[in-house]
Amino acid sequence: MTSPIKLYRNPKSGHCHRVELMMSLLDVPYETVDLDMANGAHKAPEYLQISPLGQVPAIDDDGTTLSDSNGILAYLVSRYGSDDWIGTTPVEKAEIQRWLSIAAGEIASGPAAARLVTVFGAGLDHAAAKAKAHGLFKVMEAALDGKTFLVGERLTIADVAGYSYVAHAPEGGVSLDAYPNIQSWLARIEALPKFVGMAKSPIPDAA
Rank of each mutant, 00 (worst) to 15 (best):
V166R: 03
W99D: 01
K138T: 12
A178K: 04
P202L: 07
L155G: 03
Y165P: 05
R98E: 06
S24Q: 03
P180Q: 08
D60Y: 05
R98Y: 01
P202S: 10
A128Y: 04
A104P: 07
V28N: 03
F137Q: 06
E171W: 10
P170M: 09
K147Y: 00
H126V: 07
E20G: 14
G121M: 09
I50C: 08
V28I: 09
G81A: 04
M22Y: 04
A128L: 13
K200E: 15
D84W: 12
L76F: 08
H134L: 02
S101G: 07
L7Y: 08
K194T: 12
S3N: 11
M198I: 15
T89Q: 03
G146P: 07
S78H: 15
S78Q: 15
D84L: 14
D34W: 03
K200M: 13
P90V: 13
P57M: 01
A133P: 01
K200P: 10
G71N: 13
N10R: 14
V166W: 01
N39Q: 13
K138F: 00
T148Y: 01
D68V: 13
Q183Y: 03
G146T: 06
P90C: 12
I86Q: 12
G105C: 07
T64G: 00
F137V: 04
I86V: 15
I107K: 04
M23I: 01
L35S: 06
P4C: 09
D159N: 01
G135T: 10
D36S: 10
M22F: 06
I157Q: 07
A158W: 01
D61K: 02
R9D: 11
G121Q: 11
G152N: 09
R115F: 11
G152T: 10
D159E: 00
A133M: 09
H42A: 03
G197N: 15
G121I: 12
L144S: 09
T65L: 01
A41I: 02
L73F: 03
A103G: 12
A133W: 02
L124I: 12
S164D: 06
S109Y: 14
A112P: 01
L155W: 05
E31F: 05
K6P: 07
V28F: 08
K132F: 00
G81V: 02
F149M: 06
K130A: 03
K43I: 12
M1W: 09
E106R: 15
T32R: 10
L66M: 15
E46Q: 13
L116G: 14
L176Y: 07
L76M: 10
E31R: 05
L73H: 11
A178F: 03
Q55T: 12
A44Q: 13
D83G: 02
N10L: 14
Y75F: 09
D68N: 13
H15S: 11
L186Y: 01
A103N: 13
A187N: 05
R188N: 08
A44M: 08
T89Y: 02
V28H: 05
L53Y: 11
V151S: 03
K6E: 14
Y163C: 05
M23V: 07
V174I: 12
L53H: 09
N181F: 04
P57T: 05
G173K: 08
T2W: 05
D205A: 14
E92Q: 15
L35C: 04
S3G: 11
M22D: 06
D60N: 11
A167N: 15
Y80S: 02
E106L: 13
A187Y: 01
E141S: 04
S69P: 09
K12H: 14
